[in-house]
Design a protein around this nucleic acid. Sequence first.
DNA 1: AACTCATTTGAAAACGGTTTCAATGGGTAA
DNA 2: TTACCCATTGAAACCGTTTTCAAATGAGTT
Lengths: 344, 344
Amino acid sequence: MATIKDVAKVAGVSVSTVSRVINNSASVVPVKREAVQAAMEQLNYQPNSLARALVSNRSDCIGLLVGEIESPFFGQLMAGVHRVVMAAGKHVIVTAGYHQLEQERDGIRFMQERRCDALVIHSKALPDEELIRLLEGDKPVFLLNRQIPGWEDCCIHLDNEYGAYLATRHLISRGHRNIAHISTSIAIEDGESRLSGYANALQEAGIEFDEQKVIKAYPDEEGGGYAMSELMARNLDLTAVFAYNDAMAAGAMTMLQDAGRLVPEELSVVGFDDVILARILKPHLTTIRYPINEMGALAAQRVLHALDERYKANEQALRFTPRLIERQSVLSIRRQTLKSSGQG
Amino acid sequence: MATIKDVAKVAGVSVSTVSRVINNSASVVPVKREAVQAAMEQLNYQPNSLARALVSNRSDCIGLLVGEIESPFFGQLMAGVHRVVMAAGKHVIVTAGYHQLEQERDGIRFMQERRCDALVIHSKALPDEELIRLLEGDKPVFLLNRQIPGWEDCCIHLDNEYGAYLATRHLISRGHRNIAHISTSIAIEDGESRLSGYANALQEAGIEFDEQKVIKAYPDEEGGGYAMSELMARNLDLTAVFAYNDAMAAGAMTMLQDAGRLVPEELSVVGFDDVILARILKPHLTTIRYPINEMGALAAQRVLHALDERYKANEQALRFTPRLIERQSVLSIRRQTLKSSGQG
DNA sequence: AACTCATTTGAAAACGGTTTCAATGGGTAA
DNA sequence: TTACCCATTGAAACCGTTTTCAAATGAGTT
């Protein structure tokens, strides 16, 4: 592979001159500039970015740690970051932590060793202290979906509590009073926030919170199905369910349908996240939109700005507000007739 | 950020010794080894992989070019490659070409500039010659879903024709004789292959190929819906449809259902790819499994082996055979009650 | 002709590692 | 005792760039 020296030799100039042509960093007399360009062309020269980064201390790379590579949710996150970073002429290096402490740590170490100029991190496993150590470092870092006390300026997150409140309030406004919540069994802040939002909405409407109506399961389709069957077995006369996420809602819906129950005629369902699944399910799932794509894009803009003032700052707030997406999985019911007809 | 010199100074040894400890490349007397380790710990030393790669000419990075970051299909591909490469203690650098010539070229250039040790490439836009130039280079390269004459040893692909044949034959074996094919409007090898497979199966069963029953559209849900409505307008007495991919099948199914038609009672549908969508759709979609995850994993194993004989070769064939996944979207019909000799 | 000053250029010093090579010193065999 | 070998070590060269610095050139002024 050709090096800058080869180019210099062929063009009959010094390496300094070649470097100047490459980076357009100082004036070079036209005849030499052209000779250099011709030589680069001829040798199919590609600058070694490692050497360049080594000396200039800039790699033009933004590191991104996600939970998983293959999930639609993180797919959107990656795409959001990617889009912004590419537009700035820089590149993204992605690592995945698979929700494991050790792997998340590994991913971050990898990005640091590669000397990424800045980091965007979605971590649920790493403890606050470790992230703070990162934030205190000399490179820009933004955290997604974490709230670290004292470091709010670097944390981009969604108001989960409000989202759950919205979902539950929507069900209440449609006449439902007997609403279950399928929560996550993973000890994660989101889970608690969404549970609170659910509880708040109930309280606001004067509906008693009933522990029986909250059930935790692993936050995927299977978990949702399991939770739903468990709820059905409890004979609670439910008319609606609010699930921790779309996958659980999907599992719950499938379970209901397989048991011969109609959604939403017999039971209304609301999810959370608004991943592609929600638009495919029959009936289409009413859910809470999680703008993870935009959040990733914002994170990218913020780190780029921190890196170089020339990238315009995005003044958008770091706290995102979720939005209700109404589709087909919620039915309006009249309260009074509920028990008699059950048909809404 | 601490450098190897800082560590050497703190430990009271030379940089060579520190390097030896880091790489375990030569024996170091225990007392010094421990001093070095203590110093690294104390300074929170992280080797600069750029410098290391520069001199050793190995970056421990595998470059991966995909079509899109956020699609489930490529998500699986990335995950397959990622898994294998991580297990080998190396890392993946992902770029996306978004099916655009220029962006694909850019992505490859980026990976070359970063001096990736090897490349795994899924490209549909780059011309053969350009890929051949890559293959001729000194680094291992594997191509996914391309067949370049003379370079079959580096091409991992799926037998699309056989997959389409399987899908069509399945419909025929279930008694269908009036089968449409929704094809892709994008000029892509896959499209032609799948069309041939469809035609072959028909011919084998003595069913006449009818151009009227083939329609092309953009290969997404919307295109599938459009194609289906077009087919319905033609009044062809269809009993089954084989779609280019799951997304088009989904679009077609939705279109049918919205028009009050029952799937599979009135029309059977078969897709292609077996992405997550197929398992979510109601009815669950019968489709052809595209083992892109395994194909990515194989590509990764092959490049790792090419890089270093120590990684065991995966002797799996480079041509993958698709498989029929039976779900709920195909109904068995009795052909003509009179002629029928049984349940095909 | 002598001087200033701006432009263009190349030599050389980084950047942070790995690796080669020669030096050192202790142990062992003769 | 001497010679030899092996393990351990540090100095220095190198990887492919960028960047600093000083030199060379030449035009414009006096």
